[in-house]
Design a protein around this nucleic acid. Sequence first.
DNA 1: CTGAAAGCGCTTACAG
DNA 2: CTGAAAGCGCTTACAG
Lengths: 341, 341
Amino acid sequence: MPRATIIDVAAAAGVSLSTVSVALNGRAGVSEATRERIQRIADELEYSPSLTGRSLATKRSYTIGFVVQRSPEVMSTDPFFGTFIAGAQEAMTQAGYAMVLQLSPSLTESEKLYRDLAGSRRVDGVLIDQLRVDDRRIGLVRELRLPAVAIGPSQVDAPLPLARQSAADGIVRLVRRLVHLGHRDIAHVRGCLDYVHSVERRDAWLATVRQAGLEPGAEIQGDFTMAAGQLAADEILGLERLPTAVVCVNDLCAIGLMTGLQTAGLDVPGQVSVTGFDGIELGTYTSPNLTTFKATPAEVGRVSASMLIDLIGDPDREPWTVDVPLGPMVPGGSIAAPGHR
Amino acid sequence: MPRATIIDVAAAAGVSLSTVSVALNGRAGVSEATRERIQRIADELEYSPSLTGRSLATKRSYTIGFVVQRSPEVMSTDPFFGTFIAGAQEAMTQAGYAMVLQLSPSLTESEKLYRDLAGSRRVDGVLIDQLRVDDRRIGLVRELRLPAVAIGPSQVDAPLPLARQSAADGIVRLVRRLVHLGHRDIAHVRGCLDYVHSVERRDAWLATVRQAGLEPGAEIQGDFTMAAGQLAADEILGLERLPTAVVCVNDLCAIGLMTGLQTAGLDVPGQVSVTGFDGIELGTYTSPNLTTFKATPAEVGRVSASMLIDLIGDPDREPWTVDVPLGPMVPGGSIAAPGHR
DNA sequence: CTGAAAGCGCTTACAG
DNA sequence: CTGAAAGCGCTTACAG
């Protein structure tokens, strides 16, 4: 027995298709009595409207695309994604939207994914995350006339609606705290500078250190993984002078760094203070606990998804920006005055 | 200027809609000459068929649903998901399918998500992962007449096609290795026994230890996270007799355990040997490196997705099972003979 | 080898 | 307040 369609409901209720449609969609033009009657009959028949039928009529797929340009391993490790997606989903489900997720390690491959999503009109719009410097996707979605919202830090100046969360503010405050504790040699483990997120954090560290009248400490190339943090430890141990504090691009990197330093026999924070960024749960289990700043990826997800849904409803709207406030600083035992034991 | 439709292509080529459809879909019934001509014209017009139009005609959404019943944090931490999704996508993209991902922390909420996916016919089928003992979803997809493939360990006996990978084989071999090294007190940090994956691994540990004529060591409740591993360390340290080896439910848990034991001043593997399961990259960065067994989530993803696509093409097919072979054992420095330094 | 027609399941002006 | 009709963009028997 095939599922009930709107025709079955109309027939059972003895009204026309349009009346059923109007009634069930809660639009004006049907008496409350008939609406209730139709609703009851629809429920009895277990009628549930077909997304495809509606899509064809409304020219909307009620689907949003999210193409993640990262290797599966990194995507799995980064605490951002799950929480972000959960938040985005909340906003989407409410509006009848769902998310198609595509992973792609390579840039050219992901470009093809965007083209296919747009070409088949599988999605009504896309979320653009992990922005790179001069990101090609910005021109691409424009060419494809694909509504898009970007997620990025504060300096991004793209001709797209932007949901932004400034990690810079957090880094600034962490560096100031270290300076206040008496640190004069503050190093940084940065992410790959192709990403605006890395640039933002590096710049914030650099500017704040200089502003305090200090010579910037070593700048070490890392990335957003624990593994990179561990490798960074080796590099720091190889410096002619050990920095007294290291500001890391994110928590995972900071945790890897702490582990690396401790494995080499150093005391954290006794010999080296370490800070992270993100405020992930794992940082509360390390010993010492990580001093970091809390990001709010779920909120960023919610905001960016609802921005995109708004944009889909009004595609010619001028680009606008929404700032998502950062969470609080998370104090931990991973920093102390230099030389403290 | 709206995008070209099949009507535009037909008009430009001076043929009927059906000829265009047949030609572009590579079906028989069109001369090679016209097919090429139509293809060329379609390319010129940048024609790309609308998924919605096709969906309505074929009664397929060309979309697969994946509802993940886990908290966003855990999902983010578990290395399984990203790799699994990447593998599944490979199989799906080839067949013109895409994946709608939904996260849901609660069981009742996820049940609603399945109902909505089925009701709106947003998806042609679903992948069921993280199977629980007596999983309600098995009855649910049946009630919803929603094609589904389950992903699980070897003892699952569900009336569904099953893509299975036996972690048990790996655990058995790890335990045997420990026995061979001379261990007589082998503990286990298990996952929550609601999950068949936890049960499978616990049972494998228990059976193998007994088979070796040993008294089973302590069985400690943990889960699949690092945090749980760290907590398990405390519990192990509180035992009246320290086990000489601990078999953990997965790598993250094992890494957390190692960290916890080391923080307490214990030597791994000198005082306690530790094994994991999954073979994640992080385990190669710990000190000592983790001894574990490699799972192949990408392959499980590929296999389960293509099974589901097959099932969608033949919904009345009898349930069948595909075994995905486990990867190799990953030797590491985290195990040694008991009392070894 | 090609075309005309029906149909997939909805929504939305437009009449009445 | 309700209905008849057109249309969204395809595919698929069925004729010719």
